[in-house]
Design a protein around this nucleic acid. Structure first.
Length: 872
RNA sequence: GGUUCCUUAGCUCAGUUGGCUAGAGCGUACGAUUCACAUUCGUAAGGUCACAGGUUCGAGCCCUGUAGGAACCACCA
């Protein structure tokens, strides 16, 4: 047997323990994942049972393959792993599936920067070359986050780690895309897309950040034959793309001008005046220029009025030739300046005012997003959203916190078509090929083909060239649950739908929404039964962590300093679903202290227990033993309930107070007298197992260190109900009350604990004199032999006296008087309640009875106190 | 503009279907050290539950409004 060191040192033990778990393959599901390769086996197994209550499936939101874990990952692991370990202990075949994300755009941005550093540009390479380069780059960086997940104790099935560019991922994504293509849900459209001129790629709406900014609203005159219209705009540089000016059809000021033409300033072009609802009579001059190629609203106006689209800004963010020779090649910013200057010179600039408006920015580099006319692949989301909403409204997914479901449905209702084309090489290639020869009129313009390793293919004698774009990462991520669980059509799979999807509330729309849509569309089932969303981890002052503020907490630093368990306990503390909440090192310190406490509890018990004693048959003979059984059993029930409702912080708190305040402070202290080895062993095992999901390392370390335990704690069984006698259990509560009262009184009287304790006619006290002496620290507990003296502890409904001299008693008078007043106030409150006839009439009987009992109790107490006061 | 949330002890937060005397951690004050643990033990102080109404026998919790704060969504030129 190893000796227990004086304190628990996590740093020495954690890596060793994790390695032992891995070596014992305890993280892999007990039942092989589905579908198993052997078809006959699969059939037999699936017939047998697919009782989902025996399995527990959860996927890890894949961390960036080439990154380090941040505090949010720390929280994710603490949450998910505690669930997994809990359900493993409860006998489920658990499958916690780890992943690594190629993080398309994120990684690409990092790589492009490194290219820039060495003076290279992405345009010097082909897509396939770039892809290979990034692959190597990621490969070099990989592994960090996996080590960090191990350090955090994640008990995930490493054999099944899925990388988001793995073959099976690509295959599944292509399959879905093909299905959607065949279902007519994919279309190639020339539409305005969110375009970042710096990164030269389009984004989905969700990737764009809107910020309120100060801007200028310029008023520009557009001259007509015998009139002029003053147009309001925030973007004069797009003027060259104007194809009309619009006024509201109801606007009396301009009604007669509709159908006429105005001359576009700085050019010679004539454009019509049209009437459209889009023009707001109240805003500016009520006249708005229409630029379908560079504004979302105008695009729609253009569609309604069948107007041409003139693109004047190029993909590199500079003006095209369409802007005229004087402006072509200028950046949009310079073009704006020059245009304004020229307009001013020509007397066409009539005014400007400062306004505040929302401006779209690239979420990565902050560059202003340019609405750009581009041909891209779009998913018609109408059907997808409809399917998802139906399932949500049908309560097929339970949300924690519940209100997020409403938020999600609200989002899905307003969802617009999803642009899935990205102009970056790092990602899954879009499996579409464009006809090379326009003359082959019988052949379709685009065909679906999965041979994306080829830049060119030939089908039916017609050449097709590959679309060079890649998929939006969220399109592939949307498949994550079915991919990780190896879902196959028509094959029963006990891990799909997943039991729960745990992830950050910030990606509810980007990820959770899309997993539901795609999951239901492909598999016909929701991808998970429950969703738990965690909020942001803020710094200790409630501020968002950011590099620029310098308040970033690295989870690995805390793990090194205090241990993995301490970190996990600390970060779960005071945290509830969906809330952005502060986090400070203090809570980790408190977690560390609990680990040390538990370690010393085990150390003490190991000292007390006798070897070779069978503890399957424990008894509860001594004072406090039924009580601790009751407390532990209530703790078990509470934790079970908390885990069912994802109330992690409450579960931890319950365990903390049971272990510390009850088990260590009261039970173990009393066991220093009774030394009931079988019970000590049994109860220690129970609390270790119950804490294991939250503090896996220290509980395993103790388990391995104890002389009588076998195997590993990770594979033990969650405790069953513990039997106890409720009457005996509550007797110990009276002992606790007596001891507490003695301690409290000792604090305020002269001489402290120097005085003996005397008792009158009280069998419980008489039977437990040694215990009370031990717990209170008084020199002796003796019978008063019918001769009470000293200070009576009158708040107890027992005859207990501290054997103090008269002058000490006198000084206690004030304390007693205050006590009487306090109890009197409580009594008044209860009486007032009973005086209310409506209360007696309408409140539940048991409450009324409780109040009556309370009154009797208080009255008796006051009498005792008063009598005591008289004696003094 | 829309949606959702928050306001409870000095700080960070719990408080599950309304039930009596509102909890925890940290912090604070006072006391304790051969006996598992100073990463300890004991005791205590500290809250008109943002505000104003309402429903109810009873409200931190339900309803209405007000004030302050946050997040997300949104094309207003």
């Amino acid at each position: 047997m190893m000796k227990f060191a004086k304190s628990y040192e996590p740093g020495d033990k954690e890596p060793e323990i994790y390695a032992a778990w891995e070596a014992a393959s305890v993280f892999q599901p007990k039942v092989p994942q589905y579908p198993v390769n052997d078809a006959s086996l699969r059939g037999a197994d699936s017939e047998k049972d697919l009782d989902q209550s025996k399995y527990y499936g959860i996927v890890m939101p894949p961390p960036n393959a080439n990154g380090n874990l941040h505090i949010g990952h720390g929280l994710t692991v603490a949450l998910e792993d505690s669930l997994v370990r809990y359900y493993r202990l409860r006998g489920r075949s658990t499958w916690y599936i780890p992943g690594a994300d190629h993080a398309g755009f994120e990684t690409w941005v990092v790589y492009e920067k490194s290219l820039e550093k060495v003076g290279k540009s992405r345009f010097e390479y082909s897509r396939d070359e770039l892809y290979a380069q990034v692959w190597d780059f990621v490969e070099e960086q990989r592994g960090n986050m996996e080590l960090q997940l191990r350090a955090l104790g994640a008990s995930c099935a490493w054999n099944d780690l899925t990388f988001t560019l793995d073959e099976n991922v690509v295959a599944r994504v292509y399959k879905t895309f093909e299905k959607m293509w065949n279902d007519g849900m994919i279309y190639r459209g020339e539409k305005l897309v969110n375009y970042c001129p710096k990164h030269r790629t389009a984004f989905a709406d969700i990737e764009v950040e809107h910020k309120d900014e100060k801007g200028t609203l310029w008023e520009i005159a557009y001259p007509g034959d015998d009139f002029e219209l003053i147009v309001s705009t925030t973007r004069p540089e797009t003027l060259f793309g104007d194809v009309a000016v619009a006024v509201n059809p109801e606007d009396e000021r301009y009604k007669n001008l509709v159908g006429q033409h105005v001359r576009l300033p700085l050019t010679k072009r004539e454009i019509p005046v049209i009437a459209d609802e889009h023009a707001d009579m109240e805003y500016g001059t009520g006249v708005v220029k229409i630029t379908p190629a560079h504004d979302y609203d105008d695009f729609e106006v253009g569609e309604r009025h069948d107007l041409p689209r003139i693109q004047v800004i190029g993909e590199d963010g500079t003006m095209l030739d369409t802007a005229g020779v004087d402006y072509a090649g200028l950046t949009t910013e310079d073009c704006r300046k020059k245009a304004l200057k020229d307009l001013k010179e020509q007397g066409l600039l009539r005014g400007e005012k400062k306004i505040e408006h929302a401006v779209a920015h690239c979420y990565k580099c902050g560059t202003v997003i340019e609405p750009m006319l581009k041909e891209q692949w779009f998913i018609d989301v109408e059907k997808l959203a409809e399917l998802a909403i139906e399932r949500l409204e049908n309560h097929e997914i339970k949300f924690f916190p519940a209100n997020k479901k409403k938020v999600l449905i609200n989002y899905l209702r307003g969802l617009k078509d999803w642009n899935i084309s990205r102009q970056i090489p790092w990602g899954i290639a879009i499996p579409m090929f464009r006809k090379a020869n326009e003359d082959a009129t019988d052949s379709p313009d685009w065909i679906f083909d999965t041979r994306t390793n080829l830049t060119e293919i030939e089908v039916g004698g017609v050449k097709y060239v590959r679309d060079e774009d890649t998929f939006d990462t969220w399109f592939s991520s949307a498949h994550w649950p079915m991919i990780c669980t190896d879902w196959v059509e028509d094959v029963p799979n006990p891990y799909y739908p997943l039991n729960v999807m745990e992830t950050g509330a910030d990606i509810l729309f980007a990820w959770v929404a899309r997993m539901i849509m795609i999951g239901v569309y492909v598999t016909g089932e929701v991808p998970f039964r429950e969703v738990y969303l965690h909020g942001l981890v803020l710094d200790e002052h409630g501020q968002k962590m950011s590099k620029s503020k310098g308040n970033v907490i690295n989870p690995m630093d805390l793990v090194t300093k205090y241990g993995s368990d301490a970190f996990r306990l600390g970060i779960l503390r005071g945290r509830s679903a969906g809330m952005n909440q502060a986090f400070s090192e203090n809570s980790v310190v408190s977690g560390r202290n609990l680990c040390n406490k538990l370690w010393n509890v085990a150390r003490l018990i190991e000292d007390i227990v006798e070897e070779n004693e069978n503890f399957d048959t424990y008894t509860t003979l001594n004072t406090g033993e039924d009580w601790i059984c009751r407390e532990i059993d209530q703790c078990r029930e509470k934790v079970e309930l908390d885990m069912m409702n994802y109330r992690f912080a409450e579960a931890v708190e319950t365990l903390y107070s049971t272990i510390w305040d009850k088990y260590a402070d009261w039970f173990l202290e009393s066991q220093k007298i009774y030394r009931n080895s079988p019970l000590l062993k049994k109860t220690l095992e129970m609390i270790l197992i119950m804490l294991h999901p939250f503090a896996p390392f220290v509980t395993e370390a103790i388990w391995q260190n104890l002389s009588w335990t076998e195997d590993m704690i990770i594979t033990q069984k969650w405790p069953a109900k513990l039997e106890y006698d409720p009457m005996t259990a509550s007797e110990f509560e009276r002992i606790i009350d007596i001891v507490s009262e003695v301690r409290a009184t000792s604090q305020v009287i002269e001489g402290g604990k120097r005085w003996k304790l005397l008792y009158g006619d009280d069998s419980l006290v008489a039977e437990n004199t040694d215990l009370i002496k031990k717990l209170t620290g008084v020199p002796a507990v003796e019978s008063c032999e019918g001769q009470p003296r000293g200070l009576r502890l009158a708040t107890m409904n027992s005859e207990i006296y501290l054997d103090v001299p008269e002058k000490v008693v006198t000084k206690y008078r004030t304390t007693l008087e205050e006590k009487i007043l306090e109890v009197g106030r409580e009594l008044d409150a209860l009486n007032a309640r009973m005086m209310n006839p409506a209360y007696v009439d309408k409140a539940p009987i048991h409450l009324v009875k409780q109040t009556q009992d309370g009154i009797k109790e208080k009255q008796a107490l006051i009498e005792r106190l008063k009598r005591e006061l008289e004696v003094i």
